[in-house]
Design a protein around this nucleic acid. Sequence first.
DNA 1: TCGTCGGTTTACAACGTTGCAATTGCAACG
DNA 2: CGTTGCAATTGCAACGTTGTAAACCGACGA
Lengths: 344, 344
Amino acid sequence: MADSTRAGDGAPTLHDVAAAAGVSFSTVSNVIRNHPHVREATRKRVLDAIAAVGYRPNLVARNLRSGRSGVIGLAVPELNQSYFAQLADDVIRAAGAEGYVVLVEQTGGRRERERELLRDPRLALTDGTLISPLGLTRDDAKDIALGRPVVVLGQPLLDEADHLTMQHEAAARAATTHLIEGGRNRIVLLGAHPAEQGTTASLRRDGYRAALEAAGLATPDELVVPIEVWDRHHGAAAMWELLRSGTVFDAVFAMNDDLALGAMRALHERGVHMPADVAVIGFDDIDEGRYSYPSLSTVDPGRRQIAELAVAMLLERIMGTTDAAPGRMVAPDFRIVVRESSTT
Amino acid sequence: MADSTRAGDGAPTLHDVAAAAGVSFSTVSNVIRNHPHVREATRKRVLDAIAAVGYRPNLVARNLRSGRSGVIGLAVPELNQSYFAQLADDVIRAAGAEGYVVLVEQTGGRRERERELLRDPRLALTDGTLISPLGLTRDDAKDIALGRPVVVLGQPLLDEADHLTMQHEAAARAATTHLIEGGRNRIVLLGAHPAEQGTTASLRRDGYRAALEAAGLATPDELVVPIEVWDRHHGAAAMWELLRSGTVFDAVFAMNDDLALGAMRALHERGVHMPADVAVIGFDDIDEGRYSYPSLSTVDPGRRQIAELAVAMLLERIMGTTDAAPGRMVAPDFRIVVRESSTT
DNA sequence: TCGTCGGTTTACAACGTTGCAATTGCAACG
DNA sequence: CGTTGCAATTGCAACGTTGTAAACCGACGA
């Protein structure tokens, strides 16, 4: 039980085990690594010694030797946004199934922070990175040299990285079309990021516009509401402001479910009925939307599959089981989920 | 710009920089470590070489040398439960402010997994662990020898660890009392874990019972609803079942907000009005509760402060800035947050 | 001119592994 | 009874740092 062989306060090492078992530390290493040529009696003696001194391999040393850490990094805007919490959940599970653990970083969706993260030597602790950028543009990323496996969840951004792209535009278009087919024609877009190109926000906005144009509807500027941070709070605040302004509308397409839920709260408070007065659809299919009142229509982008696919792509790079050039994959099909908030 | 000095595919090391700068690698190390005695000209030459070869320190090697990794582990049931997602958010922020990053593990609240995690050598990658156990009991934990900094969010569990305990019982009692003061007397407890002692669930149940007894109310068995997993789905399902059974009640105290939100959905679907017919209060004060309809009354346990305090306690152990025996801290005050769901 | 004393630079031994190369021991063989 | 062959064991050089001890080198005072 006791660890009488140990000196100082450090954890026992191979050498401590070796001393306890009366063999060289190489032999202990052989036992641990399942080296084929170890006599049964020796193996047992070593295993007993391991138990006796309470030895645990020092993973840091092992990593230094092997060049691998068994850790992947996941960078998301913030876990307080349900979509990313659930994405992180899925990623941790998928990675865990392959024996990897996950270091989670929050970017707040700020481009400087996203940039910094991709260059941060801290990431060298991980074998690779999965990043879901929000603010970063191709321009910002131009001079980033990675030299390590990275998978980007989003639009093509880095030449050296793999990309897993959602069908933002098509999905946004389908969501908007769903509202139009329900007879709506003054549809608010909640969460625009005006100045940007090639980001999640701009692609979804393009889809929204395309749907309206295809239906012969105009897209008045006052219906496109910019919101920097896509959380419930900002969704509610923006909706309050919109209601205060007296703008007339009969539907809302929110850039994500958090914004939609925040907006719904504001609509409730003003006594606006959903879906009778205003139909609402969000994006992401977070779990909450099933349980809200009214339950929230949304776009299911296949989050779970995306997480699994992204982890698989990253691990393939890490293990070097692929020699394909960095490329782009398009996420599996999205799906419009119709719930109460947009039922005609 | 180019890295012509490099051989092979490995990242450049101190030696590569040294070669490029024409100094010994020790000097490079001195520059990096801000050793006082380096001639200005030399420093500049080395810095240029660092930039030229694109050197980044190898953190794994640094960690091996220093015995520190700058990583802490956070073990929570699952990020899909909003409270833990927000806790993780807070912990990552608090740790980040001190220069630490966070490796997140999910336990699913399963005792075996929680046990395993505390013994897993994988944790050796981290400098310490913050764990929020759900299933683990003192008995389960009896034979766990840590030998490393651990802070437990919850009841005293491990002799070698620090504990940060919420005032579960008092808070649950206050929540229940709030419902009673609103004139309710058939109060459902949602989320009991029947057989357990000393866990979050049992302490909150004790608080619930104490409040009822103090008010001279009975606690009929049919009002105490056991639910294993505290998420929206199970909350809704349990409420459906309760409604189906014909049990009469006029209020619900849910063990957490997710359960409450799930239950509210079921109540909505059955046309039960809140708070008129049934008052609801949850626990945790997750962000969602502000935006639900009706907005959810809850117990604010001071999550943010708890996260910051827990990180501070853990870092104190890691840095060895305290030599106090492992002990227990009680979390700062909770607060009953009254919103629409329990307004009389 | 020599020794001393700074500041400056370099050498080197860890940190705890891994994995190959080298060594040992032993049995079967010629 | 010395080889050969092979299993079992051991030695040792990495992996890329940090930090201490040692070495170097002018300049300055004696």
